[in-house]
Measured scan of single mutants.
Amino acid sequence: AMEMGLACVVCRQMMVASGNQLVECQECHNLYHRDCHKPQVTDKEANDPRLVWYCARCT
C-alpha cells in the first residue's frame, strides 16, 4: 500500500482542511481523514500527541 502515498484510504484524497487532517492508525498504518473515518475522529484524539490512535477496523 506504500504506493498510495499519503492518501486517505476512504476517499483516496490527500487534501487536508482545517479540522480534517489525516490521522494514521498505529496498527495497520492506514491514513484516514477525520471526517471520513466512522466514527469521526475528535479534536481531542487528533490533537493529543500522546494518544495512540487505532482505526475502527483495528480497535
Rank of each mutant, 00 (worst) to 15 (best):
H29T: 04
Q21C: 11
N47C: 11
Y54H: 15
A17Q: 15
R57H: 10
T59C: 04
A46C: 06
V23Q: 07
P39Q: 02
R50P: 10
A46D: 08
V52L: 11
E3G: 05
C28P: 01
A7N: 14
T59V: 04
C36E: 01
L31H: 14
Q21W: 04
H29Y: 05
E45Y: 12
N47D: 08
N20L: 04
K44D: 15
T42Y: 05
L51Y: 05
Y32L: 06
C28Q: 01
T59Q: 05
Q40N: 14
E3K: 08
C25G: 01
M2N: 07
E3A: 07
C25T: 01
V10A: 09
W53P: 03
G5K: 15
C58M: 00
C28N: 02
V41S: 04
M2W: 05
Q13D: 08
G5H: 13
C36W: 01
Q13Y: 02
K44L: 07
A7S: 12
R50N: 15
E27C: 07
V23D: 03
V10L: 06
R34K: 15
Q26P: 11
V9G: 04
R12G: 13
H29R: 09
N30T: 07
A7F: 05
C28Y: 01
H33F: 00
A56N: 04
N30A: 13
D48W: 06
N47E: 12
V52K: 15
A46Q: 08
R57P: 11
Q26T: 09
A7P: 15
L51W: 07
E24V: 03
Q40H: 09
A1T: 15
T42C: 15
C28T: 01
Q40S: 11
T42G: 12
Q26G: 14
L22M: 12
A46N: 08
P39S: 04
P49V: 08
R57D: 12
N30H: 10
E45G: 04
D48C: 03
T59L: 04
A17S: 12
A46L: 12
M15P: 15
L6W: 02
C25A: 01
H37E: 04
E45K: 15
S18W: 03
N30S: 09
M14Y: 13
A1C: 07
M14I: 13
E3C: 05
A56R: 07
M14V: 14
R57A: 11
H37A: 10
E24R: 07
E24I: 02
L51C: 13
Y32F: 12
P49G: 14
N47R: 08
E45M: 05
W53Q: 04
W53T: 06
R34C: 05
P49A: 10
C11V: 00
A1H: 15
V23S: 04
M4T: 14
M2S: 14
H33R: 01
Y32I: 05
